[in-house]
């Protein structure tokens, strides 16, 4: 009796086999090139690999991969190899990805990608750093206020274009010190920062120019009566983004974000960013 579907079985491959690593690196490259929000991720561990033979030719690598968030924003053109992994003390975020990668004539192509991301537990964070603030909800009023103050401070001090907020990508609130730390992405508009009267009338430049900011906001305290804001922004060279899709966690948020209480649509790009592709091509959920 012949086995059913002869020739369609899979072969198990060592997760640390160079061929597995090669497929995983192609998958990670694909993931990062198609991210438009949150942070770039780097390979941490290959969990499982099955290699299926494909008719008439080729092989499909079905892989489960664990990733870790880096400190480079998705819009940052820095190669991920040069990005630092987010440390445990900064409240690390991991990704859990399923990929299908086709190997044909020695070339790897991603056919399917799906990633969920989730922050490390608050308990784990306390173990490594009892005083480190955990990730905060991105729509927390303190976070929103800190981002507004930081962006205003940046626009007030810049001599160039007025920058609009693209997304808040990360936030931590240190209640003891009354400080809120925020990270957010910005985009240049056709308005001059020092001349803006109505930001709503500013339009994004045709050739998109993005930036990434880290800010902190200190609330007024009973002793210290002044608010303080500090912000540092890096403006990236103008860039042509690929047609993008999102990487979502189980709560419907992008990699690097805390679960949000609102039911934001899944994989909806933020304003000013390209929509997901329609039609044929690799599927990125």
């Amino acid at each position: 009796v012949s086995p059913p579907n002869p020739g369609l079985g899979y072969r198990a491959l060592n997760c640390d086999d160079p061929e597995s690593e090669q497929a995983a690196l192609v998958a990670m490259d694909y993931l990062n090139k198609n991210l438009f929000r949150g942070y770039k991720h780097t390979l941490n561990q290959i969990d499982k690999v099955k290699v299926w033979s494909r008719r008439p030719t080729g092989e499909v690598f079905e892989m489960e991969i664990d990733t870790l968030e880096t400190t480079c924003h998705a819009l940052d053109p820095t190669p991920v190899a040069n990005c630092s992994v987010r440390s445990l003390g900064e409240h690390a975020v991991e990704g859990d990805c399923d990929f299908r990668v086709l190997k044909l004539d020695g070339q790897f192509t991603v056919l399917f990608a799906k990633c969920d991301s989730s922050p490390d537990s608050a308990e784990d964070l306390r173990k490594v750093c009892p005083d480190c603030p955990p990730l905060a909800q991105l729509n927390n009023t303190k976070v929103v206020h800190a981002v507004e103050a930081a962006l205003t401070a940046f626009n007030t001090q810049t001599n160039g274009s007025y920058f609009q907020l693209v997304e808040v990508s990360r936030a931590q609130i240190a209640y003891r010190t009354r400080m809120t730390y925020v990270e957010f992405a910005i985009a240049a508009t056709d308005c001059v920062a020092k001349e803006v009267t109505d930001p709503a009338k500013c339009n994004l430049l045709a050739e998109k120019q993005y930036g990434f900011c880290k800010g902190s906001f200190t609330e007024k305290g009973p002793v210290n009566g002044n608010e303080k804001v500090a912000v540092t922004c890096t403006v990236f060279p103008t860039q042509q983004l690929p047609v993008a899709a999102g990487v979502d966690d189980k709560e419907g948020n992008t990699a690097g974000e805390e679960p949000q209480p609102d039911n934001s649509p899944v994989a909806t790009p933020p304003a000013n960013l390209p929509e997901a592709p329609v039609g044929s091509g690799p599927l990125l959920v």
């Binding site: 941490n44 561990q45 969990d47």
Partner: peptide, 27 residues
């Protein structure tokens, strides 16, 4: 490997094919 029948041969290290190595740290 050649071993005398009376000498017990210690089993070699078991290679776990998966999951693979952790490059940074595990959450």
């Amino acid at each position: 490997n050649v071993a005398q029948p009376s000498v017990a041969v210690a089993p070699g290290p078991v290679v776990q094919p998966c999951p693979g190595r952790i490059r940074h740290f595990k959450i």
